[in-house]
Design a protein around this nucleic acid. Sequence first.
DNA 1: GTTAGTTCTGTTTTT
DNA 2: CAGAACTAAC
Length: 707
Amino acid sequence: MFLTIITSKKRTFKLRLRQCDTDVCLYHAEQVRYLSVMDKAISRLNPKQKEAVMHTEGPLLILAGAGSGKTRVITTRVAYLLSLGVPAGAVLAVTFTNKASKEMRERAMSILQGNGYKTPLISTFHSLCLNILRREIDKLGYRQDFTIFDSSDQHSLLRNILSEIKFEDKSFKPEHIMERISMTKNEMARSRTGKTASPDDIAIISEMVYPKYHEAMKTLNAVDFDDLLLLTLQLFRDHPAVLDKYRFRFRYIMVDEYQDTNRVQYNLIHLLSGERKNLCVVGDDDQSIYGWRGADPGNILDFEKDFPGTVIVRLEQNYRSFGHILQAANGVIKNNKKRMEKSLWTERDQGPKVNIFRATDGDDEAQWVADRVELLKFEKKASYDDIAIIYRANLFSRPFEEALRKNRVPYTVVGGTSYFEHREIKDLAAYLKICANSSDDLSLMRIANVPKRGLGPTALGRLAAFSKENSISLLQAMRRAGEISELGDKIKNNAADLARLIDKNTSLFRTKREMNKAFRSLIEEINYRDYLHELHKNPKAALSRIEAYEDFILSMAHYESKESAPSLHGFLEALALTDLMNEKDEKKMFGVTLISLHSSKGLEFPVVFIVGVEEDILPHKKSVGDVEEERRLFYVGITRAMKELFITHTTHRIKYGKDVPSNPSRFIEEIPVEVLKKIDRFEKETPEQAENSAKAFFANIKDMLGE
DNA sequence: GTTAGTTCTGTTTTT
DNA sequence: CAGAACTAAC
């Protein structure tokens, strides 16, 4: 059935309707007014992009090469759907990061310029699932007030389990076992690329421990990140009525970064899209760099097979990089066997060639880069903000930080140790967690003796045993500490006091208008400040810890001010699922950016340095199994650069305290020689270069003195 | 129950 | 080398 809408401006729109889309009709009349806004946005697209935007019904695969205007296409498409009269509630766009979803939301809505359009649901996989589970999880036998365990929670739980079953073999680290459990949960075993099929020792152990872990999580009334997805999938599989509800609701589904989806995510999307298959996925198999985390590039490679009738749109025009950079990228990536054929092209100039520099060692490399950064600043008038230094592993940031500091160059390190890793934040968060979820024995265990309140391991062991015998929570056991005859009177009181403290604050968080005030007084009540001073003998360190938790309180205040119905659960969810702390600091990003190859995906910089491009680092020695993914990683790095790209490597490098010779990465040879330029440190400046740099130098001084 | 010394180990990490 | 985690003595 076709419905034709006649607009005031002699423009006709054909809208195909399906039987279940009756509510579309109700909307069209008021939408026609806004088509001109939409037309403007669409007119800015190239033909391929236009095709992707206007194809609204049936499965659509958008293969979006790096820098091909992917975000513009997705956001325009969302806006386009709304402009057609599709109700906002029927549109679902799923992303991986909060940053991406935020950007998508803002840009899509800005295309429509308000005009009374409601915002569709644009969310990450995890928060989408959380929202569904909050409503439906009782159907799976969980309690509604569950909390989310982050990886350090998981880790310590697993540690407990291992010691409980007296698994003492230290050669198996809890992290590795946890990683394996996570892979199992993400249905890696059933993956089509699945090479994890061969059962090794870790697989055997994790298989043994997984049921115990799962059981423990359930009694703790907690779910982990994987569970959010897995339980939602289970919900959809076991409760068709629930699935139908969401299927009916989400009639237009879009998935960003589809190459990064794992099997569970694939199944979720598959189920949700249902018969209708109004599913649009966007991705680039060449940028699939999360295979080690369960991402299955097979999902994008086989999309056509999985969804018959798929229309494929290739976005290959690159708007980001100069020609030489693109040729380097193409030259490298074409060595991969398993990929969808595509080749980026640009209308832009060739630009400078790709610079290769060989340093003697890591410090030399860092110093050279830092000096080059200054040269760029003064000679080419580049801003520090325009420059990024990208490395394979976060630990490489160190020498660059030092060299930049030495040159007085401002910089920002992205990633690395996150805010949550700090002990004081984890401690205080544990207080919040036990208040939010009285079954969370793990958090209670963590803070039972922090600060010291005379509840050592032995006392806690007794309490834990008592809770087990009576199948009650640890908190409940503390409330009833008086009944435990093995405990001394003092300990009984200590435990009961703690239980009272938790109970009191639990109700305070529930009733008090401003949670952050309650939080602050809780921190004061437990004398956490003094505890920190005891812990760190030099007052400077203690003070910085105090500042850190002050920030934490501030972020709670921030959360409360922006949320319409703030709650402790809500805050903890935001804490687990979004990077609350970095959110605030986002604007503070300035200077040269130091970032890992992985986190650089999606970003762009006029000048990029990819450093440490050596064998055993860039194809990393631990990922020999998947050189193609390493190559994609390099490809991602190259395609971040807009104007100028530098690639550096060393002749020897200190690794774990030992000096080892290093060889240039095999990937460097894959860059066509005609786009390469080897830079020699001792190369003298040509007279005109010298003149230019002198000019630039003086111009810069003038700048600094004058305006 | 805490502390200082010792051994061990070493990617990437959107949530 | 450096941080974590474990052990052995206060």
